[in-house]
């Protein structure tokens, strides 16, 4: 999903749209990343759904940054930060999947592994 699809939405609408996709048993790959307050709200709303939706166990979530922050040059970082301020952080990818399908997302600084349930 391109970030443009949620750019104009408020926090509640963004999370609702994301969780609707997840409840449809789909894995969402979002261009960009949510703000930290949106991520925590996603966890909060996910837990409320686990409590109320039969057979829904929650989500697996991971964010992949497109460049190594430690190795990137000063100029590149400044450019990235300016872009983030203007249009949001679209340099990352966010993967969100229902826990019934995605067993685990293993992540370290160099790679990411998506383990699916049988």
């Amino acid at each position: 999903m391109p970030f443009s699809e949620i750019r104009e939405l408020g926090i509640s609408e963004r999370i609702k749209k994301i969780l609707n996709i997840i409840l449809g048993n789909k894995i969402l790959i979002l261009q960009g990343r949510l703000k930290s307050e949106e991520e925590i709200r996603l966890i909060e709303d996910t837990m409320a759904l686990v409590d109320h939706v039969k057979d829904f166990r929650g989500v697996e979530l991971a964010v992949i940054d497109s460049f190594n922050k430690e190795e990137a040059g000063m100029f590149l970082k400044m450019k990235q930060n300016m872009a983030k301020a203007l249009i949001g952080d679209t340099s990352a990818l966010t993967i969100i999947g229902p826990a019934s399908i995605v067993k685990e997302i293993k992540k370290n600084p160099k790679k990411i592994e998506l383990m699916l349930n049988k």
């Binding site: 703000k35 930290s36 307050e37 991520e39 925590i40 966890i43 979530l61 991971a62 964010v63 997302i105 293993k106 992540k107 370290n108 600084p109």
Partner: peptide, 17 residues
């Protein structure tokens, strides 16, 4: 365990914010 889980990053990011 791996410290790179998104829950850890989300908690710490939120505290920073």
């Amino acid at each position: 365990k791996s410290p790179y889980s998104q829950v850890n990053i989300t908690i710490i990011g939120n505290l920073l914010a």
